[in-house]
Simulated scan of single mutants.
Amino acid sequence: MNKGTEMPSVAMPADDKHSTSPVMLSCRGLTRVYREGPQDVTVLHDLALDVRAGERVAVVGSSGSGKTTLLNLLGGLDRPSAGEVHVAGQSLSELDEAAMGRFRNRHIGFVYQFHHLLAEFTALENAALPLIVRGHKRKPAMARAREILTRVGMAERSEHKPGELSGGERQRVAIARALITDPSVVLMDEPTGNLDQSTAASILALMDELARDSACAFVVVTHDPALAAHQDRILRLDDGRLTPSE
Rank of each mutant, 00 (worst) to 15 (best):
T199G: 07
V41P: 00
G4M: 12
H18S: 06
V221P: 08
P162M: 07
H115S: 07
G66L: 14
E55C: 02
D196N: 11
G109H: 09
T199P: 06
A205R: 15
I148S: 03
H115P: 02
L71W: 04
T5E: 05
E125W: 13
M12A: 15
A11S: 11
G89H: 09
H160T: 01
N2I: 07
D182K: 13
K67G: 02
L129T: 01
L237T: 02
E156I: 04
Q231D: 01
A228F: 13
T122E: 15
M142N: 09
R134T: 01
S93M: 09
E159M: 12
S245C: 14
E84L: 07
G153Y: 00
L129F: 12
I175Y: 09
L124T: 00
D40K: 10
M207N: 02
G83F: 06
I175R: 11
S21R: 10
P162K: 07
T150S: 15
A48F: 10
S245Y: 12
P162Y: 09
R172M: 13
Q171N: 11
F218E: 03
D224N: 09
L237Q: 00
S166M: 10
V219L: 15
L195G: 02
H160W: 06
A128V: 11
R146Y: 05
K3S: 14
H223G: 02
H160V: 00
I234G: 03
L77A: 04
M100Y: 08
P183Q: 06
S19A: 14
E84H: 04
S62V: 00
K139W: 10
M1P: 06
A58I: 06
V173T: 01
S81L: 13
L129E: 11
H116E: 02
A53Q: 14
G168D: 03
S214V: 03
G153F: 09
L118W: 13
F121A: 08
F103S: 00
A58Y: 15
A176P: 02
E209V: 09
V219T: 08
H160M: 05
S21M: 09
E164Y: 13
V51D: 06
S158Q: 14
Q113L: 15
E94I: 10
R157Y: 12
P13N: 04
R134S: 08
H86D: 14
R172S: 02
C216M: 11
E36S: 04
A53G: 08
K161R: 15
V33S: 04
I234W: 05
R134Y: 05
R104E: 09
I203P: 04
G29A: 06
R28Y: 11
V220N: 07
S184F: 10
H115D: 05
E169H: 10
V111K: 09
I108G: 03
V85T: 05
A14W: 13
V186G: 08
L242A: 00
D96R: 07
